[in-house]
Amino acid sequence: MSARGSARAKLLDAAAARFYAHGVAGTGIDVITADAGVAKMSLYNNFRSKAELVAAYLERRQQEFLDLHQQRLAALPADAGPGVRVLAVFDAYLEHAEGAADFRGCGLLNAAGELPAGDPGRATVARQKAEVEGLLREALAPREDADALAEHLSLLLEGAMVRGGLDGDPDRLRRARAMAAALVGAE
């Protein structure tokens, strides 16, 4: 990894920890560079602005989820039914939540809630949430009710993330997974 790549990774690691724990607005550039152990100029050599750093953080969080989801899918038998594939989405969310040092809900939704209307970061989060609903829809194919059920499951999943974040406990995700299993006839 180049020095530039190393500084970028350190900055993203520091930003991810701070943004999730203290919020985007509550985290200044100076704190991020200090946590990363890099000069302030390194931040601007890697990101044109704090907004660009936030965008990279949002993309990274989504990629972490997608990687977990892919690992879950890869572990399934080739003949896994739609219900089991749906639960892989819930399981990836749950694994991501359980890996948080101090669970505060969905880092994407938390960040979006801080961003003003029209901010590109909000559109990024909306696209990412649509992508998760698309994964649910794909998992349910070829069911005739795949579109409606994917939307229902997406709302269940995201609601559990929000409520779990407020509780500081991913147990709501576990309960949402059990509800989803009942809805799709899987365990």
Rank of each mutant, 00 (worst) to 15 (best):
1 M>K: 13
1 M>A: 12
2 S>P: 13
4 R>P: 09
5 G>R: 03
5 G>Y: 02
5 G>W: 06
7 A>M: 00
9 A>N: 13
12 L>D: 00
14 A>P: 06
14 A>D: 02
14 A>T: 00
16 A>V: 04
26 G>P: 09
26 G>V: 03
31 V>D: 13
32 I>A: 06
33 T>R: 02
33 T>N: 07
33 T>P: 09
34 A>W: 07
34 A>Y: 01
35 D>L: 09
36 A>S: 03
37 G>D: 00
39 A>T: 04
40 K>T: 08
41 M>P: 15
43 L>F: 09
43 L>T: 02
44 Y>I: 08
49 S>A: 02
51 A>E: 13
52 E>T: 01
54 V>S: 02
56 A>R: 08
59 E>Y: 10
61 R>S: 03
61 R>H: 07
61 R>L: 05
66 L>S: 13
66 L>F: 12
67 D>P: 15
68 L>R: 11
70 Q>T: 07
70 Q>M: 09
71 Q>I: 10
72 R>Q: 07
73 L>F: 05
74 A>H: 14
74 A>E: 15
76 L>D: 06
77 P>M: 14
79 D>R: 08
82 P>C: 01
85 R>H: 08
89 V>T: 02
92 A>T: 05
93 Y>V: 15
95 E>T: 11
97 A>P: 05
97 A>S: 04
98 E>I: 11
100 A>W: 11
102 D>K: 06
102 D>H: 04
104 R>V: 03
105 G>N: 03
107 G>N: 04
108 L>M: 05
108 L>K: 02
110 N>H: 10
110 N>C: 15
111 A>Q: 10
115 L>A: 06
122 R>D: 09
122 R>A: 00
122 R>V: 05
123 A>L: 06
124 T>C: 14
128 Q>M: 00
129 K>G: 15
130 A>H: 13
130 A>W: 10
132 V>G: 06
133 E>I: 10
134 G>I: 01
134 G>C: 01
135 L>R: 06
135 L>G: 02
137 R>L: 11
138 E>G: 12
139 A>C: 07
141 A>N: 01
141 A>T: 04
142 P>K: 00
145 D>M: 08
147 D>N: 04
151 E>L: 12
153 L>A: 02
154 S>Q: 12
154 S>H: 11
155 L>K: 14
158 E>L: 15
160 A>K: 00
161 M>S: 08
163 R>D: 12
168 G>M: 08
169 D>K: 09
170 P>W: 12
171 D>K: 11
172 R>E: 14
172 R>P: 15
173 L>F: 03
173 L>N: 08
174 R>N: 09
174 R>M: 04
178 A>Q: 03
183 L>P: 06
184 V>N: 08
185 G>L: 02
186 A>C: 01
187 E>R: 11
187 E>Y: 09
